[in-house]
Design a protein around this nucleic acid. Structure first.
Length: 1148
RNA sequence: GGGCUUGUAGCUCAGGUGGUUAGAGCGCUACACUGAUAAUGUAGAGGUCCGUGGUUCGAGUCCACGCAGGCCCA
């Protein structure tokens, strides 16, 4: 066989060729089917949305996924990877609206819901081709032939069954949340709509600092001394209309508050108020501090006298009761029996503005709602005509009838008509409330305040924060279990799990499932105002209930017609579970009341979080597959999914199956541009993945992304980095392979799996690189197992570039190119050992790298083993597999690991480096042989380790001999350094003194210390006993020699150049020139030559003749003659001070 | 505003449990090598370890407070 040797290599072409091979041979399919019956490793694919083109960050995310699936396959697991597509949701709707040039307003008017949704369905898969193309080109192995698609009926049916399970467990309920709501438009606004430009406008609102009268002050520890005072808590609001809904006051636990004795600025009655200490200056002037209270009535009423009575923390105020400020509606007790009108603690309170005490109305503020709910504080609600609980402001933005003088008034002036507002007598409701409170002595300050406030983009009128109906999953009920099970998940990085995700779970609120939109999974709940409610959990159930309606007499003709039409569709299998079709279904309750579907859609995150079940149409089908592949062993997505997919997977899984959904998760960082900015199409700094892969090929792209930064760190993507990886790593590896192939072919070497050269017959270098290789396998395995591909990749790269190429190959070149034994005599054991070692290293590297660089790994594996395939199949040996991705991970041969040898080689590397640096400093080129180096050794072990690799050092640095200088020789000069690590615990504060004393030690002191193992020093504080282990003694100098040292290792070099050495150096130079000439003349590596050199210099000729045997062998010259004159036929070459005139010719 | 996260050479990154003289690769400069050659070797220059305090005999490392970037949430 021949190994393929290459002139040069196109990495994109490697990608294309390997891809073609994978496709033709169905290698991906084989990698799964081959492992049938093996233990499974389950991976869940987080479904991307195909309504946009894929970006370079998708290459990153998918490379991570791919790496561990491939790695686990190598480890013998069966890894099925079902692809999926996320298809529902707002982004799709927005894109369709943009394409059609419509807004949500138009839906149902200029376009029917059916048409609209049809359009969404088409749009969402618009970029599927691009995605599939990228998936293939980047080498992401995932099954795209049978992906799950979230809009499919089977998928939705699974979702319904999960929802029904939640419903049956009482974990699905209808409640409300505070959302931006536009009374003028009669609709809630999404956060997307609220983020549109122009939404926030500066408005001047009437603001009130209201005074809440403390009840039973005497029984409060902080107020008991001042119980005779009229104590009132101050709270500021920019929305006075919410004051009738106040049920609590929120303070910050750690904030300092004060009780200030003063007067009511409007009624001038004495009063004591509570506010944050930091804000006292905002309400009281220095002038009034501790001023004359008695003469206040007579004095200028503009300056309030005041004095601080006491100070306390917010925490101490918790639970204080106060009188209702505007008692129009008396609230019920809270769910836990707690009463309204008390002080509670909240983390959002600041002393930036206001009074440091927040007026809290649970129905009209999101924070308010949250903090009230957390503290069990009830909200003020009234019942409408149908008996339903509603807030005290109706959906048009008017106070309800219960609110005394304000009944029927709009809460915001902008809601009145222009004429109404123009009336000179018109006063906004906020102003009327302010007047009333002033009169009642309940206002401390009223003023206009300008601030930004959100407005409805459609009507341009202010929005209200308003309670809107929503369906919730009661995640809070399972909080403890969610937290507990999370602790069993292996998060990479750990901090995302315990920090970001853990905190999120700790502060869990119920999952708001409702979305008021069109393109999504419909909520399968039918209900009416009579208290009837039905949750549908399957197509069968829906059929059953539809059938019931057909025979009932409660439907109108039209309703009955719709129902029977839909039923017929269900029966034929040609049905659509989306809006508007399901909306027309009208069911009948047991009591004979009609029930209509709740119009909401569910949060798309439920779609994706339910993929473990819905991808298999569980529980309706594939129960067995589901049971085997749940929970997932591994998932990976961006860290931005923490509260998205990671949470929804976890929540559904814990709530319904009391299990984690995934055992290991890698949350990946962002891909930024090279300057660290977020990539965006708008900024034009987005990187096109197709272009990148087209230019550099998939492997360098993947390798760069993986090895440059750990997956969870943000990656600053610099295209030049890919080029660097390509040159440095892939280039070196390619050269190494090519080197192997070149000489293996020349020698006709073929790897034989059935027999190998015994370790005893291998050189130090062979054994060393094999030891390194096994250590590498060990370390790389550990990193892959720890889900750290970055460290795995860096280890492989270091091995290839530093150890294999730059040391093993470089030092072994001669073994490979030395002519083999005479023709026909076969290869020497030494050569076989060299080839075998190198082949083994390369093929192992091809496998170790294959998860990260699947194409190049494959290319390398195939080049090394294709010719051995048939034999291997016959022998059932490891190379029987067509693809590296089908092989089993290399076993670590522990007995080949020789740490002592690895240490020796490290010494060889650093000694060589030191000698090189001395040569360099003295301008002694490596081709000039030198006689010896001197290495001081303080212990026998080091000497033995160096001797083990002595010949390697000598060859590498071109020196004849190495001599060891022992401690007792007396020529070594030693240096002593304190070992702080051991001295620290012993001497602590005396360290400086000790360190100085040690540094001052003399040669004989060091000797004494070495001899006795300890020494007593006299410091300022008396005797200090120092043990040998407390110091580090290194040989630093050999007087009279040229030395270099590093890391406690010192090398001295004899730079005397004798005549013989000089001649040898000339001979070496000569060889070098001849080799160049051979090459320039285009001779073949195996050509034998004849050399004629013109005799022009005595020293030169002498040097050549003295070393003729060496020269002839090196340059493969069968003749080497020195002739008097070459008659002008010579080639002239400069060589230091000589001018060579020589002629070389091939001998036939 | 809150949670999490990052900050070390021009660039990209390493730097268990604190140990005094902070490393690598790329890039740059110089030299060498020239049968792996669009390679390779050696050396050099290059640092306020984001800042300020603190703990400690000793802080890139631990603590506190800031600054800057990022993500998520409000």
């Amino acid at each position: 066989m021949k190994y393929n040797a290459y002139k040069n290599l196109s990495y994109p072409q490697v990608g294309d060729e390997v891809l073609k091979f994978w496709k033709e041979q169905q290698i991906f399919e084989a990698s799964v089917s081959l492992r049938e019956g093996s233990p499974g490793f389950t991976f869940f694919e987080g479904p991307p949305s195909a309504n946009g083109a894929p970006g370079i960050h998708h290459v990153m995310a998918r490379t991570i996924k791919d790496i561990f699936c491939r790695y686990k396959t190598l480890q013998g697991f069966q890894v099925k990877r079902k692809g999926g597509w996320d298809t529902h949701g707002l982004p799709v709707e927005l894109q369709v609206e943009k394409e059609l040039g419509i807004t949500k307003e138009d839906i149902g008017k200029t376009i029917s819901v059916a048409e609209y949704n049809e359009r969404c369905k088409q749009t969402v898969m618009k970029f599927t081709d691009q995605w599939n193309d990228l998936t293939e080109k980047m080498g992401y192995w995932v099954d795209l032939d049978d992906p799950y698609i979230t809009y499919k009926s089977d998928y939705i049916e699974s979702l319904w069954s999960l929802l029904k399970k939640l419903y049956d467990k009482g974990l699905l309920y209808k409640g409300y949340t505070i959302q931006p709501y536009s009374p003028a438009a009669g609709t809630g606004l999404s956060s997307h709509e609220l983020n549109m430009p122009g939404t926030y406008q500066d408005v001047k609102d009437t603001t009130i600092v209201a005074m809440f009268k403390v009840k039973e002050a005497a029984s409060q520890a902080i107020f008991s001394d001042y119980a005779q005072e009229d104590i009132r808590i101050l709270a500021w609001t920019t929305t006075p209309w919410t004051l009738p809904a106040n049920t609590a006051l929120t303070v910050g636990a750690g904030i300092n508050y004060v009780l200030v004795k003063t007067f009511n600025p409007y009624t001038h009655s004495p009063v004591s108020v509570v506010l944050a200490k930091d804000l006292v200056g905002k309400y009281f002037s220095e002038k009034g501090k501790d001023a004359d209270f008695d003469n206040y009535q007579a004095s200028d009423k503009k300056v309030l006298p005041w004095t601080i009575l006491s100070e306390f923390k917010g925490k101490q105020m918790e639970g204080i009761r106060y009188e209702q400020l505007m008692p129009y509606v008396i609230p019920d007790k809270g769910p836990t029996g707690k009463e309204a009108f008390q002080v509670i603690l909240g983390d959002f309170v600041t002393t930036e503005d206001g009074t440091g005490i927040v007026h809290t109305s649970p129905t009209f503020g999101a924070d308010d709602f949250r903090v009230a709910q957390a503290n069990g504080i009830p909200a003020i609600m009234v019942r409408d005509e149908s008996g339903k609980e509603v807030p005290i402001v109706d959906r048009q933005g008017r106070f309800v009838k219960e609110i005394g003088p304000y009944a029927g008034r709009f809460v915001k002036p902008e809601y009145y008509s222009a004429e109404d507002q123009a009336d000179p007598a018109f006063k906004p409701t906020d102003v009327l409330i302010a007047i009333q409170l002033k009169e009642e002595g309940k206002a401390f300050r009223v003023e206009k305040y300008e601030h930004p406030y959100p407005h409805c983009w459609r009507t341009d009128k202010p929005v209200l924060y308003y309670p809107l109906d929503s369906w919730f999953i009661k995640t809070t009920a399972m909080k403890d279990r969610l937290v507990e099970l999370n602790k069993s998940i292996n998060w990479k990085p750990e901090s995302t799990g315990s920090g970001r995700f853990g905190n999120w779970l700790e502060n869990l609120v119920d999952w708001n499932l409702s979305r008021s939109r069109y393109w999504g999974t419909p909520l399968p709940i039918w209900r009416n105002d009579h208290g009837d409610e039905l949750c549908i959990g399957s197509i069968e159930e829906l059929k059953h209930h539809l059938e019931e309606t057909i025979v009932s007499e409660h439907l109108t003709r039209e309703q009955a017609l719709h129902n029977s039409e839909y039923l017929a569709k269900l029966q034929s299998g040609e049905f659509d579970l989306h809006r508007p079709y399901v909306d027309t279904i009208c069911l009948v309750s047991k009591n004979g009341h009609l029930m209509f579907r709740e119009p909401d859609l569910i949060d798309v995150w439920f779609d994706s979080g339910a993929m473990p079940y819905a991808q298999w149409h569980y529980p309706f089908e594939n129960q067995e597959i589901f049971n085997e592949s749940y929970p997932a062993d591994f998932i990976s997505e961006g860290v931005d999914q923490t509260r998205g997919w990671f949470f929804t997977l976890h929540a559904i899984s814990v709530m319904l199956f009391d299990s984690v959904a995934f055992k290991n998760v890698v949350s990946t960082g962002l891909v930024l541009d090279k300057a660290g900015n977020k990539m965006s199409k708008r900024l034009g700094n987005a990187v096109d993945p197709f272009e990148t892969i087209g230019q550099y090929g998939p492997d360098a792209t993947r390798w760069y992304m993986i090895t440059n930064a750990e997956p969870w760190d943000n990656l600053k993507f610099n295209i030049e980095g890919i080029g660097e990886v390509q040159r440095k790593f892939f280039g070196t590896l390619f050269n190494t392979y090519n080197f192997f192939a070149l000489y293996a072919n020349l020698d006709g070497y073929v790897f034989d799996e059935t027999k190998s050269v015994s370790m005893a017959k291998r050189t130090e270098l062979d054994r060393w690189i094999l030891s390194k290789l096994n250590t590498l396998i060990d370390q790389v395995t550990a990193q892959y197992e720890d889900y750290n591909p970055t460290k795995a990749g860096r280890l492989i790269q270091d091995f290839v570039t530093d150890q294999l190429s730059n040391w093993y190959i470089r030092l072994n070149r001669r073994r490979f190119w030395n002519p083999s034994q005479e023709q026909g005599a076969g290869l020497t054991d030494d050569k076989v050992a060299a080839y075998e070692t190198l082949q083994h290293c390369l093929v192992t590297v091809s496998q170790l790298m294959s998860p990260i660089a699947p194409f190049f790994g494959e290319w390398l594996y195939k080049n090394l083993t294709d010719g051995l395939r048939e034999t291997a199949k016959a022998n059932n040996s490891p190379f029987r597999f067509e693809s590296v991705h089908l092989t089993l991970f290399s076993e670590i041969k522990r007995d080949e690991i020789d740490q002592d040898l690895e240490k020796s080689m490290e010494l060889a590397q650093s000694i060589s480096s030191l000698v090189h640096s001395i040569r360099k400093g003295n301008k002694l080129k490596v081709r000039q042989p030198l006689s010896k180096i001197l290495i001081p050794v303080l212990n026998a072990d080091t000497q033995r380790q160096i001797e083990q690799v002595k010949s390697i050092i000598l060859t590498e640095v071109n020196v004849k001999d190495v001599e060891f200088v022992k401690d007792d020789s007396g020529v070594i000069k030693k240096k002593i350094k304190p070992n702080f690590k051991t001295l620290g615990p012993k001497f602590g504060p005396k360290m400086k003194e000790v360190a100085a004393a040690i540094s001052a030690l003399k040669e004989e002191d060091i000797k004494s210390l070495e001899k006795h193992g300890n020494i007593e020093l006299i410091g300022q504080s008396g005797m200090l006993e120092i043990a040998l282990s407390d110091v580090e003694i290194v040989a630093e100098d050999v007087p009279g020699w040229l030395v270099a040292s590093a890391d406690g290792l010192t090398v001295a070099l004899d730079i005397t150049v004798t005549d013989a050495l000089r001649k040898e150096g000339i001979a070496r130079d000569f060889v070098n020139r001849v080799q160049n000439l051979r090459k320039d003349s285009g001779f073949d590596v195996v050509d034998k030559i004849k050399i004629n050199l013109q005799d022009s210099d005595a020293l030169l000729s002498e040097a050549i003749m003295d070393n003729s045997a060496y020269i002839q062998q090196e340059v493969q010259a069968q003749e080497l003659n020195i002739v008097a004159d070459l008659n002008g036929e010579a080639t002239e070459i400069e060589m230091d001070e000589f001018l060579l005139k020589l002629k070389i010719e091939v001998i036939a």
